[in-house]
Amino acid sequence: MIRYLTRRLLGALGVLLAVAAVTFLIFHVMPADPAQAACGKNCSTERLAAVRQYMGLDQPLPVQFGAFLTGIFAGRTLGTGQYAVDCGFPCLGYSYAYSEPVWDLLVARLPVSVSLALGAAALWLLFGLTSGVTAALRKDSLTDRTLMVGAVTAASMPVYFTAGLLILLFIKTLEILPYPGYVPIAEDPLGWAGNLLLPWCALAFLYAAMYTRQSRTAMIETMSEPYIRTARAKGLPERTVVLKHGLRAGLTPILTIFGMDLAGLLAGAVITEQIFGLPGVGQFFHKALTTGDQPVVLGVTLLAASFIVVANLLVDLLYAVVDPRVRY
């Protein structure tokens, strides 16, 4: 177990390093010049050179990358002299547009994205798994067919379509919900949930449909296993067979998908946050793209990648807990 864990941790670190290198390369080889972006349109040649030197862009690429990596683990000071700014651990860079370290900016916006992702995940797990398992247990019945037609249709609707319809219906026509803002959960839990209700639903709709399809397939497969027949044959009530023997094995594959989906949304619900105007990481990312704030873009990409890597690791470890056949 310890050996496995060490190997996995080292592997995860390697992946993050590779992601960082690739991201770094893309943004420094691509034609958009960060110094130009920071300096503005009316920038003289000397001033541009000064900015380049200040931002360390005159250094060779490996040196820049090395400095960036050191910054993440030990923090760093950017620039020199009176313009020096301190960027403490974990330094993902410094946003010149906001005059703040990227990490602080991200931390300030993360609660919004986490609230959005976790709420939506709870909804789609509840509805997706319930309808998937129901459909699987009543295979080929009318319920099954209705659910599956609904699921395949819903899975074809992009999130902006669902979001648009929800806004039109609940905010513009019925006027029963306010246009979403963000209220921290610590301040006003009810307001927090009320404001996030529509974004949750919009996001969960698509995922619930996909989970319905996946959990149905997985459950059908599990319920036709010999050990389920054994469980039935030894006289266990159907309830126990399904809940204790069926669900556990049937839903383990869903865990992998869930880990990836949730991790992807923590820093990647760009469209949903954009449509509902939620000030989360996704919207921040989109804004940074349009203003050419490259340190932010780089920071968000790395953050998103680390979520995925960590989720992957957690899922694999959880597997051993959920599925007794898996041992490391």
């Binding site: 690739v22 991201t23 990647g268 760009v270 990312f285 793209l289 990409t301 998103a304 995925i308 890597v309």
Partner: peptide, 9 residues
């Protein structure tokens, strides 16, 4: 392991 959508954007 790459956050695909973020990277594509």
């Amino acid at each position: 392991s790459f956050p695909a959508l973020i990277f594509m954007i």
